[in-house]
Design a protein around this nucleic acid. Sequence first.
DNA 1: TCTATCAATGAATATTTTTCATCAAGGATG
DNA 2: CATCCTTGATGAAAAATATTCATTGATAGA
Lengths: 295, 295
Amino acid sequence: MAILERMHLAIIREVDQHGSLTAAAQRLHLTQSALSHTMRKLEDQLGVAIWRREGRSLHPTQAGEYLLAVANRLVPQLSHAEERLKQFARGECGALRIGMECHPCYQWLLKIVSPYLAAWPNVDVDVKQKFQFGGLGALFGYDIDILVTPDPLYRSGLLFEPVFDYEQVLVVGPEHPLRDAVYVQPEQLLDEVLITYPVAIDRLDIYTQFLMPAGISPRRHKPIETTDIMLQMVASGRGVAALPRWLVEEYAAKLNVRAIRLGQAGIAKQIFLGVREADADIDYLRAFVELARVR
Amino acid sequence: MAILERMHLAIIREVDQHGSLTAAAQRLHLTQSALSHTMRKLEDQLGVAIWRREGRSLHPTQAGEYLLAVANRLVPQLSHAEERLKQFARGECGALRIGMECHPCYQWLLKIVSPYLAAWPNVDVDVKQKFQFGGLGALFGYDIDILVTPDPLYRSGLLFEPVFDYEQVLVVGPEHPLRDAVYVQPEQLLDEVLITYPVAIDRLDIYTQFLMPAGISPRRHKPIETTDIMLQMVASGRGVAALPRWLVEEYAAKLNVRAIRLGQAGIAKQIFLGVREADADIDYLRAFVELARVR
DNA sequence: TCTATCAATGAATATTTTTCATCAAGGATG
DNA sequence: CATCCTTGATGAAAAATATTCATTGATAGA
């Protein structure tokens, strides 16, 4: 009845990753012959070719491509389930896979994780930041268990909860003319170099909530990957950036940067934690959310 | 290395569904002994009990519950993948699993499906309406391939496209005092029985966009499952309902109901089709979206 | 208390997987 | 262009694994 087995999925992945049956066989601690037989049998049973044999190499057919996509989706889930069950055996509660969708959240997260690790010594924490299908996709796809994001989604099978309020501010260096301003207007950034994390503009609040409504663009827009470098650049007068106020204040001691309100009212932000509804009653998961909310 | 196999997942599902190893064995065309051995071995390898043996029956342990959840999630995906591959073999393109998140969309969908089936004779169409984790969850979880919904989500790994504009209107029966009104105000529903589909109020536009902004509640709120019965009720003067204008007009011929604009401006709605980004270039899937957009 | 039913178990058996040995063919190399 | 190395395919043998059979012990219900 059932023909497609975990081994088939494992094989097609390894072949894709290492280019040949022989290499895949080594990684799976089997012989080339074993894999050849196994896959040949699958092809016979399904009646479809998985690879086109061209010369001495294998190229996935359309069916093969499909199988590969399935394998890449399901094999990690099987592995993780197995891992999880072994953890049950060791009396460990499990592993908490946290996904991050906003760059500065990472700094905040670090402050939550360490008391959490202390309180739950037998829960492993793993933080992931890159998602093929976005944070929501990762949550739905069981790649992560908790999503840290500024954009909640109040429907479907997910639960979101706000855990942290902060203000998004402009950061300027020691020589900057705006240094002592109470707040800044969009027009005042016309001649500036704006440094941001390298994400789409419609995910940057300084654009969506501040510059775009006023129809303003900064002189130049420079994407920088890491917070440290970003602030170094700001401190040395190479540009301005938009970051959470608490983050700027932490750096202010050593870097001589200043936080300035964006607009008269400021930009208020919240960080949310999202979990799958089905997981809502897992104790070590709830505990994390509650710990995060308190701080 | 890999211990958890498809068979284990199949067994725990069947045992859950049919209550005993013996019954599960029958369904899997194996003996009770085979299943017992298989699962015992798994338990030994993982070092964790899947079931508590109480008297002559099996109750899942915590680990068992977890494994069951995994199985219920992954086994259907494996089966579907296998089915899909067999379709490749038969030269069929595949199956289009359509998920519906709005009740009246169903009527609209029927009009798209029949020309689609004609144009793609070797694609099967399957329509699903109940989702454990919402329509988005079903899309992310590979339970469906296309989601029909009035609420798009423009981010993550999904693509949404509007395919149909319509107006949400109030439906009244032949004797109703509002029958000849050009439009209706929220206050005029104060003394009415409002019939809707049985979904949460915040997913009903007549509430979110019409009644709630005015702070009005109808005299009574009656949920009805099917469109036909709903309109029968309206026609016989038992209440009023909110439905798409085109739907009402189709029924108007035989049922003597009338569509009345909601508010002076009316309520404009759109139906969207959502697909996974990764699937965006599958021809028979694209074709469906395009066909839907044209009509 | 008796009986029917369930799960567990050990040994025997059947099946499947894997390896081994070998071949054929394709690239690479000089 | 011949040679050499590597790759995948294949059939038969061997090993490993899964399955059955036969039986036991336990238990819920009559």
